[in-house]
Every structure is written in structure tokens, then in C-alpha cells.
């Protein structure tokens, strides 16, 4: 079958999709967007978390056909997504636009510092993960970033219990989670400081 949907702000179409394929498979294997990770394919680990019409979902549990006509944001589009949110909030309007698939595919830290994120356009939550040391092997990171970004979108000052609740569907085997909590607190604090103009 053929599936049409919007990925990171850009209309896309996938051909020859078998009905049994998941959104995750189509993103990773047909669209060249392997940022969303496959760690369980059964909705347990959250590594495949993407936004589907704004709602965080496990892409491994969404049949590709269910996405027809809808909007998906993946980790590859997160920086642009956050930037547009910030701009539209500043101008008091909400809009969608986004990264071209081509741009997302060519996402690369080339010419920037791969260590500090300097020179790279990152979402605040991405920068906070780097700064707080919340990334180890990084396999859980894309899913956690999408989930944490959504939390900060609806709750600018999350309590620790809020953070734990929002991230309770995401497993990490490396960090022990403390640094991930640090990163979300850091992103919230920076957002707060910006918001209040300090």
C-alpha cells in the first residue's frame, strides 16, 4: 500500500508498504530516519517515541497505515520543532512548517563541535542532555528527548514527580536515570530564566 503523512513538517509518501509494517519500520527503513530506535518492538522501552499529531506514542506500536494524513515529529526534527514552537509562542500564533526531509537526512554535526553542541542548532532539551551528562550509549536518548520535550511544552516547571511520571515509559539501561532527571531540571530552569527575561 501507499502511505502519505507529514514527517518533521514535510509531506512524505511511502510506497510498497506491507500492512504489517510499523510506523517505526517505515521511518527507519523506508524514509532514512533511523534516529528513532527499535529496542523492543512491544511498547515497553520508549526508545521509538515520536509525536503523532502532538501526542507522544511508541512508533513500534503504530501500524504505518494508521498514520495516513497525520503529522509525525521525530528526534531528527526536534530542534526545528522546538524552535518553531518558541517563535510562534513569541508571536502569539501557532503554525507548522518544518525541516525538509532532505535536511533531516543530512543532519550532521560536521563543522560543529560534536562534544559541546556548539555551532549546532539544538532544542533546549538536547543541549541539556549533553550538558548534564545524561547520554551514555545513547540508545534511549531519542525517545527520552521527544518525551521530555513534550513534558516541558505542557509544564514549564515540572516537579520531580512530574518528570518521573512523564518519563516512566522510557527505559535506560546505562545511566541509572539520575543524570536524565538532572537534564530535564536543567532544561526547565533555562527555559524559566529565558521566559522571565533574566
Amino acid at each position: 500500500m501507499r502511505v502519505n503523512f507529514t514527517v518533521n513538517g514535510r509531506k512524505q509518501e511511502a510506497d510498497d508498504v506491507w500492512e504489517g509494517e510499523s510506523l517505526l519500520y517505515v521511518l527507519r527503513e523506508r524514509m532514512g530516519l533511523p534516529g528513532s530506535k527499535n529496542a523492543c518492538e512491544q511498547g515497553e522501552c520508549g526508545s521509538c517515541t515520536v509525536r503523532l499529531d502532538g501526542v507522544p506514542v511508541c512508533a513500534c506500536l503504530v501500524a504505518a497505515g494508521q498514520v495516513e494524513g497525520r503529522e509525525v515529529v521525530t528526534v531528527e526534527g526536534l530542534a526545528d520543532f522546538a524552535k518553531q514552537r518558541e517563535e510562534s509562542c513569541a508571536s502569539g500564533a501557532c503554525g507548522s512548517g518544518g525541516t525538509s526531509l532532505q535536511a533531516a537526512r543530512q543532519w550532521s554535526a560536521k563543522g560543529t563541535d560534536s562534544q559541546t553542541g556548539e555551532g549546532e542548532e539544538l532544542a533546549p532539551i538536547q543541549q541539556a542532555f549533553i550538558d548534564a551528562g545524561a547520554v551514555q550509549c545513547g540508545f534511549c536518548t531519542p525517545g527520552l528527548l521527544v518525551a521530555a520535550d513534550e513534558l516541558l511544552e505542557r509544564n514549564a516547571e515540572p516537579s520531580d514527580a512530574d518528570i518521573r511520571e512523564a518519563l516512566s515509559g522510557n527505559l535506560c539501561r546505562c545511566t541509572g536515570y539520575e543524570k536524565i532527571l538532572d537534564a530535564v531540571r536543567l532544561a526547565a530552569a533555562r527555559q524559566d530564566r529565558q521566559g522571565s527575561g533574566v
Binding site: G35, Q115, I130
Partner: peptide
């Protein structure tokens, strides 16, 4: 490799 890992690259 921090930047590459947070961008999905």
C-alpha cells in the same frame, strides 16, 4: 559523541 546522539545522527 554527545551532539550526534541527541540529534539522532
Amino acid at each position: 559523541d554527545g551532539t550526534l546522539k541527541v540529534t539522532g545522527e
